[in-house]
């Protein structure tokens, strides 16, 4: 890329990121359920068409390709990668209406559904398939509407949605910091998925704070990013001691 100087989140001292230990993850899906509940993600009676469903945090199955009984499979939870590549994120670069933007202060890539016109360009541009389109009007059968949380507005038909690293939780944490008279800028918070994980395989924090667990783990020899060769520089790191898992993280490794 010619204009690699335009830095996204590389300026400040704050860059929220996530590290997911695949050696610990058992693929139970608690993270995904917590995410769905936290973010009012709609569901349909038939969720087996994976290409039409809405999922902010998808569990992928990775297989080592060997024969029984050398066969192994693991789960890989994939939230939005909140790419922090030099130029821009693949999605934020292409959105014609500025409905998705990267916050240079935090590294978070947001998405504003009411701004979105549903052109799906961002979805096409994202190599991680982190974005889902609302193909249908969301319907919660009565009385399941009662469990919709007011913190995140349900989306309407015809727009894109994706993981926000629970941006509303960041806002909540900042509000609390303000009330407590602390610096609202550098607050620590935890997204719903990380909070739910029963194996503590997910760690969230400031990647630029060398003292944070996330930053330390991101430098672990077991750490890798998915599709690092695309220079998207995801804010989500994965840990695995398995070579075959590393091999599956990018093409031609």
């Amino acid at each position: 890329m010619s204009s690699g100087t335009e830095n996204g989140s590389h300026g400040g001292h704050l860059h929220y990121g996530m590290v997911i230990d695949l050696d610990k993850c058992t693929g139970c899906g608690a993270c995904s359920v917590a995410c769905q509940e936290e973010n009012n993600i709609s569901f349909r009676a038939d969720e087996s068409d994976k290409l039409r469903g809405i999922s902010w945090l998808t569990l992928y199955r990775l297989e080592n390709g060997k024969e029984y009984p050398a066969y192994r499979a693991i789960s890989l939870p994939r939230p939005c990668m909140h790419c922090s590549g030099g130029h821009d994120s693949p999605c934020t670069y292409v959105c014609p209406v500025n409905a998705t933007k990267r916050d240079p202060e935090t590294g978070l890539v947001n998405h504003i559904p009411v701004r979105c016109i549903g052109c799906r360009y961002c979805m096409v541009a994202c190599p991680y398939h982190a974005r889902s389109f609302n193909w249908w009007d969301p319907v919660w059968p009565d009385p399941l509407t009662k469990m919709l949380t007011p913190e995140v507005s349900p989306r309407m038909r015809g727009v894109i949605e994706k993981c926000t690293f629970c941006g509303h939780r960041l806002n909540r944490a900042r509000d609390q910091a303000r009330v407590a008279g602390e610096d609202p800028k550098m607050v620590a918070y935890t997204p719903a998925c990380v909070e739910a994980c029963p194996t503590k395989a997910m760690v969230f924090g400031n990647l630029k704070d060398p003292q944070s667990e996330a930053a330390k783990l991101a430098k672990d020899p077991r750490a890798f990013q998915i599709l690092a060769k695309l220079n998207t520089d995801p804010s989500v790191y994965y840990l695995s001691k398995e070579q075959w898992v590393h091999k599956l993280s990018d093409n031609d490794l």
Binding site: P96, V97, N98, I117, G118, C119, R120, M156, G158, V159
Partner: peptide, 15 residues
Amino acid sequence: IGQPIRGWFGYWHAN
């Protein structure tokens, strides 16, 4: 586009 009614955002909120 999924939201043709506000398709004109392309002009108004152009990126």
